[in-house]
């Protein structure tokens, strides 16, 4: 059930209040319980309220919508989608959302500078996303050129399946 104080979050704690000899049961979410002094700091700490993800989600809720909404040019994720989940879509999101992300990262991490180890240069040749689609297209062109129409039809079907998966994962 929903919290009986904010009517927004899921209630996870139940309280019995005694007022003027009358017992009253209330279901509250942890934030409300904490703000009303019903949770001790220890209980709040161990309920995970102090972790970064929780804080991130609260910051995101407060940060207001981007007008107009912006999207990542690489993966298509919109800022409003990110606000709902707290999850970015690809490494490119950090670049395309940098203006909105910067103050957010600063508030939750208390820093905007990496001081840990640097990345290593990979020595191995890497696969590229969509590699399979690229290879299929190349094979398809070759098949058409060689007039291998049956093979071309099979390859076209497989490409369609790949592309429909892409559409599904984008919505």
């Amino acid at each position: 059930m929903l919290c009986q104080s904010c009517h927004k979050k899921q209630a996870t704690l139940s309280y019995t209040e005694i007022k003027a000899g009358q017992a009253r049961h209330r279901m509250l979410c942890e934030e409300c319980a904490l703000s009303q002094g019903l949770l001790s700091p220890m209980e709040a700490a161990i309920s995970g309220l102090s972790d970064l993800l929780t804080q991130l989600m609260m910051e995101l809720t407060d940060s207001g919508p981007a007008r107009p909404d912006i999207s990542c040019s690489r993966c298509g994720l919109s800022w409003s989608q990110f606000q709902k989940t707290g999850r970015l879509g690809c490494p490119g999101c950090y670049r395309d959302f940098s203006e909105k992300l910067e103050p957010l990262v600063m508030r939750i991490q208390h820093s905007d500078r990496h001081l840990g180890k640097p990345a290593k240069k990979a020595a191995v040749q890497l696969p590229v996303a969509g590699g399979q689609a690229v290879i299929l297209k190349r094979q398809l062109n070759a098949a058409v050129e060689k007039e291998q129409f049956e093979l071309a039809a099979t390859l076209r079907d497989r490409l369609k399946v790949l592309e429909s998966e892409q559409v599904r994962s984008r919505d």
């Binding site: 991130l56 820093s111 191995v124």
Partner: peptide, 24 residues
Amino acid sequence: QERMEVAFSADRGFLTVCPSNLGT
């Protein structure tokens, strides 16, 4: 990391799905 190129930026370190894990 010698075998795969990981998402990294000099300022922000290792790029993670959730900004709460960013950096190291």
